[in-house]
């Protein structure tokens, strides 16, 4: 089982990110579960979404304490919230920031990847809505979901036009990581 924790702020589409990753995995033929941190979070307050992906039905309904992957959609959370807690050794942290991984200075036993998602999203969407760009980056970095899965998740969730735009954003994120890897 793969466990993913996504951190962001209310209003940044974190719940949707979880749903999209889950749906992408589902359409890749896997079992998935996604759920937001439950509460009366307001715009701007820290929020978390949890995603599990597995080859068999998922029964566990607890929070995720030891994620394989952590996605940080808002890098300011690094300073204030224990967003990196419990990350598995050799896990992966994906941070939305213009800074390089080294510049973040995270003392981790894991891989740290950064992506300037706002810039990439601006190019694709004309608006700095970063979650689908990060989604693409996550697919490339983790291999947990496919770009094709993301496409069907977007088509399921959005109108045709919006799905296409967001797929562009996701592809930008995807390619950014792929190119960076090489």
């Amino acid at each position: 089982m793969i466990e993913i924790r996504i951190h962001g702020r209310g209003g940044q589409g974190i719940v949707t990110s979880g749903e999209l990753i889950g749906f992408a995995a589902f359409s890749d033929g896997k079992y998935a579960q996604a759920y937001p941190s439950f509460g009366s979070e307001r715009m701007g307050s820290p929020v978390t979404t949890y995603v599990r992906i597995d080859d068999r039905p998922i029964r566990t309904r607890t929070l995720i304490y030891n994620p394989d992957f952590i996605i940080i959609q808002d890098s300011t959370l690094l300073a204030t919230e224990p967003v990196l807690d419990g990350l598995k050794p050799k896990g992966l942290v994906l941070v939305n920031t213009k800074k390089s991984a080294d510049a973040l200075g995270l003392d981790l036993n894991s891989r740290v990847l950064t992506i300037p998602a706002a810039e990439l999203a601006m190019e694709a969407l004309g608006r700095p809505i970063v979650n689908t760009t990060i989604l693409g980056a996550f697919a490339a970095a983790s291999g947990a979901i496919s770009l094709e899965g993301i496409r069907s998740a977007l088509e399921h969730r959005f109108t045709k036009e919006l799905a296409e735009k967001n797929l562009k954003a996701a592809t930008k994120g995807y390619n950014f990581v792929k190119e960076k890897k090489q």
């Binding site: 749903e19 889950g22 749906f23 079992y31 579960q33 996604a34 759920y35 937001p36 309904r61």
Partner: peptide
Amino acid sequence: DGFILTHAYEP
């Protein structure tokens, strides 16, 4: 169960 089932996504 509220949230745990109402707000979670599953197949």
